[in-house]
Design a binder for these strands. Structure first.
Lengths: 154, 154
DNA sequence: TATTGTTATACTCTATAACTATA
DNA sequence: TATAGTTATAGAGTATAACAATA
């Protein structure tokens, strides 16, 4: 390590990456998550688990692998998450009668209560984290993100 | 684990999260990164290291902490990344003469060569990963993402 | 006292391959 | 043979706090 000859730079450029959706997606996502976690206090309301529980509640009987694929979670990792939620009594794992390989998921009463209790907190945090955009901009952004993710438009 | 009474659900809803920028950002980002990595073969061209090297090349003398903040990398983790790049002879760490606490970074000749050699590959992969959007949609999305990230508009 | 960067460590997240059971 | 899920494990990524040097 030697002595620098030039001044530090405070305004940075990222060249071609400034026009890269992939790069900007990553930065924007990290920014929003930092804010969301700051509001939620990560340890009290794990946003990932909340998402899974909410989805199971909205889609009772959903197959585990379908949910994993949609949330971009590997099956091998999904197993651990689901077992943990089951162990805490928040969900039930049920063998599908049509295909006995498949596991279908539903909330227990305790799971429903948990989702309900944390709903307001999560939604408030999620909304605040994008307060820099107005209503129209949020709608536009949501639509473009769905397209990128290969999700159906609403 | 018992027997399920209902059929599996293949079309999922995510309720209020479907209209959440934060949630969609995460899914979209994971989707794009999967595609990008598939093209790059992650082990050959680590996109994170490429970004750091590109930024140092475009902003010679940049201070380590400034770069870390901008890329949402913690200082303690940035140290390891920078030391690794230095150890491979791709960058130099220089003490800033104005503030002897600060480290300013620049590419070595080998570093410049590395960036140049991988430039085309990275940019091609990054572009292909958002091929589902047309030119205008990409511009709009980039602008909105910059706003979310708190970055200046170009 | 505050800032810049480092060290050490623990924890979470993610990826991979081999495996069982069912279709 | 292919699919649904599990297990084990390694590796990457991330967070936290205590610390030294300089401002």
């Amino acid at each position: 390590m030697s002595i620098a000859e030039e001044a530090d730079v405070e305004t940075l450029s990222f060249g071609p990456l400034e026009n890269s959706v992939g790069f900007l997606l990553r930065i924007a996502q990290l920014t929003v998550y930092e804010r969301t976690f700051a509001e939620l206090d990560r340890r009290d309301v794990p946003i990932g688990e909340y998402t899974i529980l909410l989805a199971i509640g909205l889609n009772p009987g959903v197959r585990q692998g379908v949910l994993a694929d949609r949330l971009r979670i590997k099956w091998s990792n999904m197993t651990k998450l689901i077992r943990s939620l089951e162990g805490r009594g928040l969900i039930e794992r049920l063998v599908s009668p049509r295909d006995r390989r498949a596991i279908s998921l539903r909330l227990t009463a305790a799971g429903e209560t948990w989702v309900e209790e944390h709903k307001a907190l999560v939604l408030r945090a999620v909304e605040r984290s994008v307060a820099s955009l107005d209503e129209d901009e949020q709608k536009t952004l949501q639509s473009l993100l769905r397209k990128v993710a290969g999700w159906p438009q609403l």
